[in-house]
Nucleic acid binder design. Structure first.
Lengths: 350, 350
DNA sequence: TGTTAGCACTCTAAGTTGACGAGTGCTAAT
DNA sequence: ATTAGCACTCGTCAACTTAGAGTGCTAACA
């Protein structure tokens, strides 16, 4: 059987309607509402064909049709009415991210909140993988007699610190010397290169008593570890409850529990992301079995070229793909611009 | 009508049973299950009295009785079987917090997760109010030509930083001088004392060109602001879905939305906390109308004597008060000890 | 040959009914 | 003061009915 143009138009009408109404669509509805110049009987025949071809499914014998994952896939790839944001929507997205932020994590929190609010789906952002980032500065700052702060900055401008105890004998001058040494030796290295073992070996060369050096090295290693494990921000997790496909308590619970337990959804978002551009995973296309009746739209953003983070929107397969895709695309741009500003690659400062 | 001993025993039995079963309790159940030496008819009469006195309520004419908020109040204050944690439970709570943490926020996240997991209710922790904390160290660390990091540490060992741009002409030596100046002048001051205006005035005395000084002052002010707005950690928000009183979707949605929108629940947790000891707010005792059918148990912990943060557990009014109260009490102790360790008031280091 | 009207059939959702059981309040006996 | 007994109330549940939406098929039509 061939997928002719008329079938496509009918399929599009059905999916458009279903996305809006969330109820199985019958042939009469399509005949009445869409100006296809066809009677319900003809559409009925076409729908039977579309079902046979796997684009539609029937919940039960005497119900209307519902799009299948395959149907959505065709819809997203070919049929979907291309929409772009109008100026009001652009303003809405832009204004919320506009509040000056000083940190990547704040930026991502905001972006997530805005997107979730705009799309009414659950939105997530994961911080970039830092494995390939390099150390820019390591500093030891005296805080109190016997206490100091180790501060590590990487090339993405991410800062981590660790409060440590040092011997009371450590003078500010000694700390400064160690600080300079660490800075000299570690600056420019990737995290892998500067792994714990290496830091340890470096320590021996320093020629400072071990009870001063040790906590500093530990603190440095700790900062690096902190940077490596990425964080995830989730907003609008309860949005899902507004969609009828989750009116069943168990489904809703399952979904919410998944979000609570961040590791697996975090991995799903990562894995879904494509190097450049937008990824749409529909229903069974998802590896994670617990979101087999959801669609996950992701986009990746870059920090300082090498580090890649991801933003994702998750909702029922019956999702407003047009809106979601256009807004996540635009948000990628906003976030990228803002990151550039944060990292100081833009002329204007603050 | 007088609240004699027998009435109390019956009320206790009813509430014990209701907390367990979540269903209206009838007179026969009490007569059968509890060895009160009374027939169901007698208990029936007593129950009618207890209802008239406001300790019980009847969902509808021919149903059993359900505790009212007033009933729970008496139960918590006088009737409740006092329980303390057994050694297994203590071990469970302790072990999870035992993982070495380096930061207050991590500690709170863990404590929240453990309590939520242990009690099966939603658990929250809010970071301390920092208004009254004092500045310990202010440091400016050069990062790149034209970029620097302002680091502020307060007396609770909380660290905040801000990445700033400075004039390219700023030498490392100049930054150091400013750093020392800020450190000298601001160290020991409370945040109020070191407010933005003050920092600004201080700046003028410094005698450094304004395009170097300005961003540093801004960064410092930003760090202070960051410390002032507290964070909140929520765990086990979906636990509520396991309780039958939230089987109604709308109720569940309302509760979860409340948690999403953190400000009001954060305030509720703060307001509920009592200077020392545990606060239990039952149902209508809560100011926040959207949790009028929940109970909120809170405890406050101290950081460096002056700063007060709060941990809270929220669940249906039909809550296992004994378990919740004993575990939150113990958690307060664990958290306090760990904070002391973090702040270095204990001999052993890491 | 493609399209359409008509019709019998299927299936679900929603409403109705009646039996059942849990629980109460009252009364009279102990 | 306590209790047994009983009539009464009310909610739950399952069985049944009905209405409506939608289909597939067939036959007529352009």
């Amino acid at each position: 059987m061939i997928m002719d143009d008329r079938k496509k138009r009918i399929l599009q009408a059905i999916i458009d309607d279903y996305i809006d109404k969330a109820e199985p669509i019958g042939s009469r509805t399509i005949a009445r509402k869409y100006e296809l110049g066809l009677s319900s009987a003809t559409i009925r025949n076409e729908m039977a064909d579309l079902e046979e071809m796997g684009y539609l499914a029937q919940p039960h014998t005497s119900a209307g049709r519902v799009p299948s994952d395959k149907g959505y896939r065709l819809y997203v790839d070919k049929l979907m009415p291309q929409r772009s944001l109008n100026s009001d929507e652009i303003r809405e997205l832009k204004s919320a991210v506009n509040t000056r932020v000083y940190e990547l994590s704040q930026l991502l929190k905001q972006a997530t909140a805005v997107l979730s609010n705009f799309t009414k789906y659950t939105t997530m952002a994961v911080t970039p993988r830092m494995r390939s980032s390099t150390i820019k500065t390591v500093q030891v700052v005296p805080v109190d007699p016997g206490k100091a702060l180790v501060v590590v900055v990487n090339n993405a401008g991410i800062v981590r610190n660790a409060l440590i105890k040092v011997s009371e004998h450590a003078t500010s001058e000694m700390l400064g010397r160690i600080s300079n040494l660490l800075n000299d030796r570690l600056s420019g290295l990737t995290f892998e290169q500067a792994d714990t073992e290496r830091i340890r070996i470096l320590g021996r060369e320093a020629g400072v008593s071990v009870d001063i050096l040790q906590p500093i090295l530990d603190g440095t290693a700790d900062c690096i570890h902190q940077m490596e494990d990425h964080e995830m921000y989730v907003e609008g997790s309860t949005n899902i409850l507004n969609h009828p496909e989750f009116k069943d308590m168990d489904k809703a619970k399952q979904f919410l529990s998944l979000l609570d337990e961040k590791t697996s959804i975090c991995r799903a978002v990562y894995d879904s992301a494509r190097p450049n551009g937008i990824s749409v995973r529909i229903g069974s296309e998802n590896d994670l079995s617990s979101i087999r009746d959801c669609s996950l739209v992701t986009v990746s953003y870059n920090v300082a070229d090498t580090m890649v983070g991801t933003i994702g929107i998750i909702g029922p397969t019956r999702m407003e793909y047009g809106k979601v895709i256009s807004s996540i695309r635009y948000m990628k741009r906003l976030v990228s611009e803002e990151i550039d500003r944060l990292l100081g690659n833009e002329p204007e400062s603050m």
